[in-house]
Design a protein around this nucleic acid. Sequence first.
DNA 1: ACAATAGTTTAGTAATGACTAAATTATAAA
DNA 2: TTTATAATTTAGTCATTACTAAACTATTGT
Lengths: 129, 129
Amino acid sequence: MDQLLQALAAPRRREILRLLRRRERSAGELHRALGDVTFGAVSQHLGVLEQAGLVSARREGRSRFYATRDQGLQPLREWLDEMWKDALSLLKEQAEAEERGERPARAPAERRMPRSPRRRLARTQRRRR
Amino acid sequence: MDQLLQALAAPRRREILRLLRRRERSAGELHRALGDVTFGAVSQHLGVLEQAGLVSARREGRSRFYATRDQGLQPLREWLDEMWKDALSLLKEQAEAEERGERPARAPAERRMPRSPRRRLARTQRRRR
DNA sequence: ACAATAGTTTAGTAATGACTAAATTATAAA
DNA sequence: TTTATAATTTAGTCATTACTAAACTATTGT
């Protein structure tokens, strides 16, 4: 998960993935397609993507052809689904609580009600944030 | 997309999101739950997550309660779906090409067939990579 | 063997980022 | 007003990283 998100976090690498979406390409072809980055840098990015399981390479003569590995994004998809599932179940619980006439749960352990009417000092206001 | 993935790439921030999955928590509560990181650092992480649209904050007295924003992950979901869709359509195209008796497309522009039988030099092999 | 082409690796640099300690702001309570 | 609590902000440090130029490796052609 870590390597995966780290690899995806760099815009340049997402650019490379985008170029590889529809068909495989050699490192040199990628280099030429990107235009403003050295061959060395492209090769390094490809190494990171390969380590993260996002691309695979195939040798053909002097060239290496890189292609996206569709299973590569699977862990991210699963993580996302898990997050989503939790968000849904939370909403459901809140709706049920609402039905029972409760207020939506809000960090109950930390809740501390004011014990006296709020006294608001008129104060020179400095900075809002 | 950039801010989003950048925010998710840090393990500490995913840890915070995990803590916020089921219910909202104050910054201090998060600080105590994490244990090995300063209050300041937690606050900074929360700032990044808020900028990325992954959490929202609610003030209550001296505390600020943070909660996950479920729409926050939507762009990532869409990006992922797009990637997935392309992978599927590529597979489909390849299958159709296969049906027509073609070989799977492999970077046709760069393809260069050897013009003579390969002569393989017996060479002292140094390092594999 | 030698030259040419394709790619990787390395050394070094500049920018970014996660972290800490300390200063600062905001709110509430005595 | 003063004190305490909750959180943010800042200044500075250390590690990581994206990049370049240049050295190196691998493969093919002559």
